[in-house]
Nucleic acid binder design. Structure first.
Lengths: 331, 331
DNA sequence: AGACTTATACTCGATTACAGTATAACATGT
DNA sequence: ACATGTTATACTGTAATCGAGTATAAGTCT
């Protein structure tokens, strides 16, 4: 029976703007991203099993400024870019502890920072949580060894032939199997599928006692789990960022003041989880006049010294509105 | 002074996931869209000055299902597509009544429906609220007559030369002035600018006694106002929908079961607020195999009878994932 | 000096975007 | 019956862009 029809839902709810009488708690959850030495990292707490979060204060002027406030106070990180991700309230996902809570999640970009030990906050590579998302050196072996058998099992236990075909098609598109090409933006959809298929630990927590393929070894290799639905929120953040860097100059928020074009490229590759074509990347960056030469060169390249560039903050205003283009070859 | 540093904000907020002790109210606000006889319409209440909204029920399984539940119960509209827009809590914007409320806004698409009088819910063309957004027959005269003088005044009262140039550039890009081309997706940014410039009534409500250009006649022509920040939410919905139809087959949620290609085109044009190139539109629709012929024709075209088409729901699954393309030419 | 690594510049082909034009099949008016 | 207007449908051409490949320059390392 649909829980929406349960007697506890008020039958005389009106189309008015009157606020709900009973209060609920609202938490701000942050996906803070930095790219350190070519690896995308995310700030975690609680033994790397949770994203930093804090209560929404009524004193805050807005949600975004509220988030900015406590993040900068707690971590001393300068937040270059902040964007709201999604608001969650699924009881299914939240476990038992936070049933009456709403989670408003945010994506925040910051520069490389000194380690900050307070509150046991630590940076961790985001591919530790999503090992199947890193295709920079081709599809990871995990996909053939672990993912494909797991998906195959999930497909085979579908109720009927039509459902099996639907599951197979969905899995093939999302994970780029067979003739389908890998689409790096479908991070959230892939996580949702693995959740549905009970292939990740979070899905078998609480309400589902016997998963379809309760293979402990299999589950262990599919990335580090997190509390509540934090891994889902992280997936949302990665997906949003991967989509955003293609038409918005937010990558520069993650870069140091001066950088070489290859460093910039490596940063984009780290985020996108795939390689980009070097000549085309350089062409697009330069022809859009997003960067300017500093006149100096970097000699710790191992080869020919590379020109150092600096982001042209003057064009940020227009580009932020009008958009940018980054070449991340898809198919 | 920044309100974030006010003494009422808790200085010892921690990086934990503990919920906030005091509760706050959460409202669901819906932007319900239908396209009736070539006009995009939105469902309104309270004498067309508010969007339908309702309290978030703890009994609901999730936010989205909560919204679906009360919308379908109250309006009897079949919601084809539902998507979360944004969560607002700005005290500045919310006026005085709803300071402690969070608004979680959703976009919902529905088919043409019989008029539904209950709760004084009425459909209204969304260009009544954003007259400057309709460029289907070229830039509306309102732009030259009202908008440009208003923007000019706003630019001229900037503190210094640099700020003036920044304002001018921003206005030119957003409103497609001079050499800049019109970008139909920047609905929210345009509204934000007009709000900043105090050119719309909501901006001068409450905290701002004397607006820069308190020209009542000018203000009156810049669209129908709404309560609280509902017009901003509507702008968010329009912007999201305009962006979405380009790569996601959601238009069909707004169409009747069978339709001609021109009807489909008119629907897209109504949403995008601009004309599209007919041959290219047809080519893209057909080559993507999104539709199939019903075999019948429609003869109330005035000219040659048009083939009737039907959306191929079978490809929806893959297209919803892999994406689609609609040609909306942006210079 | 030679091998190697990286930076930088240039070229080429395929695809796509965008615009224009031509013809077909109806309605309406005279 | 015929001209005219309107819409549907099909086809063609051009410019821009994307993706991939190649060549050369300028350093480091052994």
């Amino acid at each position: 029976m649909d829980p929406l029809d349960s007697p506890s839902s008020r039958p005389n709810a009106r189309l008015t703007t009157r606020a709900s009488p009973q209060g609920i708690a609202a938490d701000l959850v942050a996906v803070l991203v930095a790219v350190t030495s070519g690896e995308p990292r995310v700030l975690t707490i609680q033994d790397q099993r949770a994203l930093p979060s804090g209560p929404f204060e009524l004193a805050h002027r807005s949600l975004q400024s509220g988030l900015r406030a406590w993040v900068e106070r707690q971590t001393r990180l300068p937040l270059g870019y902040v964007e709201q991700l999604y608001t969650f309230a699924d009881r299914d996902r939240a476990g038992t502890a936070a049933q009456h809570a709403i989670s408003i999640s945010y994506l925040g970009l910051t520069r490389e920072q000194p380690a900050f030990g307070e509150h046991e906050a630590r940076w961790r590579g985001w591919y530790d949580y999503f090992p199947w998302e890193d295709h920079r050196v081709g599809p990871p072996p995990l996909m053939e060894q672990t993912l494909r058998p797991g998906l195959k099992a999930w497909i085979s236990v579908a109720p009927d032939r039509a459902a099996q075909r639907a599951r197979r098609q969905r899995a093939e598109i999302l994970f780029g199997l067979d003739e389908h090409s890998w689409n790096e933006e479908l991070v959230l959809q892939r996580y949702e599928l693995l959740y549905e298929a009970r292939l990740i630990p979070e899905a078998t927590r609480g309400n589902a006692p016997t998963p379809i393929s309760a293979n402990a070894v299999l589950l262990d290799t599919l990335g580090h789990p997190m509390i509540l639905d934090h891994r889902r929120i992280l997936a949302t953040g990665i997906a949003r960022l991967r989509a955003k860097i293609k038409y918005h100059p937010v990558v520069f928020e993650l870069m140091p003041d001066t950088f070489t074009l290859l460093q910039l490229q490596r940063c984009v590759e780290a985020l996108a989880g795939r390689q980009v074509h070097k000549p085309n990347f350089r062409r697009l960056i330069e022809q859009q006049e997003l960067v300017e030469e500093t006149g100096e060169t970097s000699q710790d390249t191992g080869g020919r010294p590379a020109k150092l560039f600096r982001f042209r903050r003057t064009v940020f205003a227009e580009r932020a509105i009008a958009g940018t283009k980054l070449p991340i070859s898809g198919a």
